[in-house]
C-alpha cells in the first residue's frame, strides 16, 4: 500500500517532467537539456515571490509558471531556432543555457537549500498510511494537467497543428501551418509543465541550484525507455520508473534507487533503442 501511494507520487512528478521533454522533441526535434532548468526556475520563482516579495502562494506559483513558459519561448526563439538544423548544436546550446542558469542561481541565492511553501500543510491517512497532503495534490494536478494537454492536442485546432508537424514537419509547412509559431507554443507548454512540477515538488524535494540535474536525468531515462517523442510511452515509462524506484527503496535500500533509472536507460539503449512505444530509434 505504501509502495502504491509513494510510487504514484514519484510517477506523477516524472510524468510531468517527461511529457514536456518528449513533446518538444516529438514536435520540433529539439533535445532540450535545459528542461531541468525550467523545473528549477519554477521552484525558485515561487520561492522568490513568496519568501522575498511576500506574495501569497497561489499567485506566486502561477506567476512563476507563466514566466518560465515565456522564458521557454524566448530561449527557443533566440538560442534554439538558429541552431535547429543541427542536433548537436541544439544539445550544446541547451546544455550551456542550463549551466548558465545554474550558476546564476548560485550567485543570486547561494548554494543553500531554499523553502517553497506547500499548498496543503496537513497530512492525509489512506488505509493506515500517513502521507503529506501536498504529495497527493501532485498526483491530482499531474493527472489533470496531462489530461488537459492530451485533450488539447487531440481536439483543438492548434493541437491538430502540433500533431501534423510532429508527423511530418515538411508537409505541414506546405499546408500552411506556421511551424515556428507552433514550436514556440510547444516550448511554452513544455517549459510550463516543468515549472509546474518544480512548484509542486519544491515543498518536499530539494530547492537548490543544481536541482535541474536530477529531473533532466530522469526525463532522459524515461523518454528513452518510453520511446523518444511518444507521450503515452513517457507516461507509461514514468510510472514504471517511479514504481521501480519506490520498490527498490522499500525492499533493498534507499541508496540503491538512483541506479535504477540509469540502468534502465542503458539496457533499453542496448536491447531496444526505439523504446517501448517508439517507432524507430531516435539516434
Amino acid at each position: 500500500m505504501e509502495i502504491l501511494i509513494h510510487g504514484a507520487v514519484s510517477s506523477a512528478i516524472y510524468a510531468m517532467l517527461a511529457v514536456g521533454f518528449t513533446l518538444i522533441f516529438g514536435v520540433a526535434r529539439v533535445l532540450n537539456l535545459a528542461h531541468g532548468s525550467f523545473y528549477a526556475l519554477g521552484a525558485y520563482g515561487t520561492y522568490m515571490a513568496t519568501a522575498l516579495l511576500g506574495w501569497s502562494l497561489l499567485p506566486a506559483a502561477l506567476m512563476a509558471i507563466v514566466l518560465v513558459a515565456l522564458l521557454g519561448v524566448v530561449i527557443e526563439k533566440i538560442f534554439i531556432r538558429p541552431l535547429r538544423h543541427s542536433q548537436l548544436g541544439v544539445l550544446m546550446i541547451t546544455l550551456s543555457i542550463s549551466l548558465v542558469i545554474e550558476q546564476a542561481l548560485f550567485l543570486i541565492f547561494g548554494s543553500e537549500y531554499r523553502n517553497v511553501p506547500a499548498f496543503i500543510q496537513s497530512k492525509v491517512s489512506i488505509g493506515g498510511i500517513d502521507i503529506a497532503g501536498q504529495r497527493l495534490l501532485v498526483v491530482a494536478v499531474a493527472v489533470l494537467a496531462i489530461g488537459a494537454l492530451y485533450l488539447f492536442i487531440q481536439w483543438s485546432r492548434l493541437g491538430s497543428a502540433i500533431l501534423a508537424i510532429s508527423q511530418d514537419a515538411e508537409a505541414a509547412k506546405y499546408m500552411g501551418i506556421p511551424s515556428d509559431r507552433i514550436f514556440a507554443l510547444v516550448m511554452a507548454i513544455s517549459a510550463g509543465l516543468a515549472a509546474l512540477a518544480g512548484v509542486l515538488a519544491g515543498p518536499f524535494l530539494s530547492v537548490q541550484p543544481t536541482m535541474h540535474l536530477l529531473p533532466i536525468m530522469k526525463a532522459f531515462a524515461i523518454v528513452i525507455v518510453g520511446g523518444l517523442g511518444s507521450i503515452p510511452g513517457s507516461i507509461v515509462a514514468a510510472m514504471m520508473l517511479g514504481y521501480a524506484e519506490t520498490i527498490v527503496a522499500y525492499t533493498i535500500s534507499t541508496s540503491w534507487t538512483e541506479i535504477v533509472s540509469v540502468l534502465a536507460t542503458l539496457l533499453m539503449l542496448v536491447f531496444r533503442p526505439a523504446g517501448i512505444f517508439g517507432k524507430r530509434a531516435a539516434f
Binding site: E2, H6, V9, S10, I129, I131, R135, F204, L205, S206, L214, T246, A249, Y250, S253, T254, S255, T257, E258
Partner: peptide, 17 residues
Amino acid sequence: TELFDTQTSDFSPLLAK
C-alpha cells in the same frame, strides 16, 4: 540501520521503513 545517498531527495520510503 540504513545509509542513504547524499543525493537522495525523497525520504518517504526511508521514513516509512
